[in-house]
Nucleic acid binder design. Structure first.
Lengths: 121, 121
DNA sequence: ATCTTAGTTCAACGATCATTGAACATTAAG
DNA sequence: CTTAATGTTCAATGATCGTTGAACTAAGAT
């Protein structure tokens, strides 16, 4: 019984919800980072540059409830992955165009180097 | 001096704003209708099925300020057009994928027949 | 001038948003 | 067991959202 967090089924992902979820700078930045890291899962903590723990918890819930990300508990962490395939199935070409557009915007790219989990060397 | 309503320049159209503007059922429906009518301009009044005059005025302003539509006063009316080319230039493929996704959703399509301006036959 | 059409502005309202800080829960490590 | 790491929950807060109704403006039509 891993995965007790509610995620919408693929066919229940609704476009207005997805658009609203991405219509926030912090969350849009998060999915851009996740997309850049392709299929590697990331923990919430890796986004602390973008806000407080509480704020991130809130944004992660929004993205999860909209069906944009998958949240998988792993120990004390929550591993996040983009629901790429589900979104592509439901809204073909949409996610790619969004991510490409974000990447083409020079503004939020100072932190292009994604921070490591605590304890690098 | 037509066009005294403020529209963002193409290069100033921001993705989060566009996403937020489309992240509302009423407004998403509006742009889907506009897209279906391709380049023919539509008046605000043609959307009265979607809300009150006041509500529409509000939504039209949101879409205009986000850079999604062009609003051109014509007599007592406001003619609306999608800023297709500007959006395509700024966010390639984005609008098409959104519109295609809306059209693929059976829910908001009862009114597929777009209403005429007052005085059909 | 009067009336109609088409849309705007304004104040109000309840709802949701995004954030904060404090307290709590869960898992892991010493 | 104690401590640390990682997130969640809760209540509060100020801001923004989407809607309403009443009043208003601007442009045509009679």
């Amino acid at each position: 019984m891993t995965n007790y967090l509610p995620h919408p089924d693929t066919e229940d992902i609704a476009l207005p919800n997805v658009l609203a979820a991405l219509g926030d700078e912090t969350r849009l930045t998060m999915i851009a980072i996740l997309a850049r890291n392709s299929e590697k899962a990331m923990s919430c903590g890796q986004f602390l540059q973008l806000g407080s723990k509480t704020a991130l918890s809130y944004h992660v819930a929004k993205l999860r409830e909209a069906g944009v990300i998958q949240v998988r508990p792993e120990g004390t962490k929550r591993m996040l992955t983009l629901r790429r395939d589900d979104l592509e199935k439901r809204f073909p070409g949409f996610l790619d165009s969004v991510v490409a557009s974000v990447d083409a915007t020079p503004d939020p790219q100072q932190w292009t180097g994604v921070p490591e989990t605590t304890g690098g060397a």
